[in-house]
């Protein structure tokens, strides 16, 4: 399986990234190397093997769902690139 520059550009879009065109070409080449290496996994027959998505074996510990006010609005907005003091501001979405 080979990844073209177009494929890499499409993935960049899905990932909400915008690398420079020469970077996209470079990424496509590197992905081909990396994914070639990953083909190694196909040497193994994994039919019927239950996938392992997390090593957690314990049961989830429940707690009461209590409302806490731990942080002020000011603190939570403090790192935002743009606010009006009450809300996060983003570029206009609807005309």
């Amino acid at each position: 399986m080979s990844i073209s520059t177009d494929d890499a550009a499409k993935v960049a879009g899905l990932a909400r990234l915008n690398p420079a065109p020469e970077k996209i070409t470079q990424f496509a080449d590197q992905f081909n190397d990396i994914l070639d290496y990953m083909q190694k996994l196909n040497e193994l027959d994994t039919s019927g093997i239950e996938p392992l998505y997390t090593p957690v074996t314990h049961e989830t510990v429940f707690r009461d769902d209590e409302v806490l006010k731990e942080y002020s609005r000011e603190e939570l907005l403090g790192n935002a690139p743009e606010t009006d003091g009450n809300y996060f501001i983003v570029p206009r979405i609807v005309g």
Binding site: A12, G13, A15, R16, L17, N18, P19, N79, A80, P81, E82, F88, V90, P91, R92, I93
Partner: peptide, 24 residues
């Protein structure tokens, strides 16, 4: 995503472009 914290590209014309440029 350049909204709640972290770097934001201030030049972007719309939301998607803002996400993509900020992240790259």
């Amino acid at each position: 995503d350049g909204v709640r914290y972290g770097y934001r590209d201030k030049e972007a014309a719309n939301l998607i472009e803002m996400y993509r440029n900020s992240r790259s």
